[in-house]
């Protein structure tokens, strides 16, 4: 039997809310899949499209960006820019043949432990569904 696909996911969590939400999930002993490898960024607005492109390019199966809820961002507006940019790049990548499921964006506040764990599960499921990216990368970019 084939081993279940264990996707590689990189998660950019903003320091003030989403990362704190992840902490709270841990303290509350909420279990979630270990796939999203967390990188703490000061603010979701820090995530430049280059990061997302680079991740896809390097064969990371999925990306997850999470920040504070609208209005909560410690730096006031970072999360708005993040969202706008994220959807642009998502559409662009979809156009280029990258499945929607690989790119995920969420708002998780410092008190939403449950939502964090849920989203981590959902993101992992979605990326699993999309399958390993290396196939795709090879087919679309390398074999052409």
């Amino acid at each position: 039997m084939e081993k279940e696909f264990d996707p590689k996911i990189v998660a950019f969590l903003c320091n003030w809310c989403s990362y704190a939400g992840a902490d709270l999930a841990g303290v509350s002993r909420l279990q979630y899949p270990p796939n999203p490898e967390v990188i703490r960024v000061p603010c979701s607005g820090r995530v430049n499209p280059f990061y997302i492109l680079r991740a896809i390019y390097e064969g990371i199966d999925g990306v997850w960006v999470s920040g504070c809820h609208p209005g909560d961002c410690h730096y006031q507006t970072g999360n708005y820019y993040a969202r706008r940019r994220f959807y642009l790049i998502k559409n662009l990548l979809e156009f280029a043949g990258i499945d929607r499921e690989r790119l995920n964006f969420s708002w998780v506040s410092a008190s939403e432990a449950g939502k964090f764990a849920e989203t981590a599960k959902k993101v992992t499921e979605r990326v699993k569904k999309a399958g390993p990216i290396d196939k795709l990368v090879k087919e679309r970019y390398l074999n052409d």
């Binding site: 990189v10 990188i39 960024v41 000061p42 603010c43 607005g45 820090r46 995530v47 430049n48 280059f50 990061y51 680079r54 991740a55 390097e58 990371i60 410690h74 730096y75 507006t77 970072g78 820019y81 993040a82 940019r85």
Partner: peptide, 29 residues
């Protein structure tokens, strides 16, 4: 304040952060 919004938007990779800069971030990714 080090939020990085500027580095997030800069299309030429010129705006960067001393912490969590491109080099650091890519090395982690």
């Amino acid at each position: 304040q080090g939020c990085g919004t500027c580095a997030g938007i800069c299309p030429s990779g010129a705006a960067d952060m001393k912490e969590m800069g491109y080099r650091e971030m890519f090395s982690v990714m």
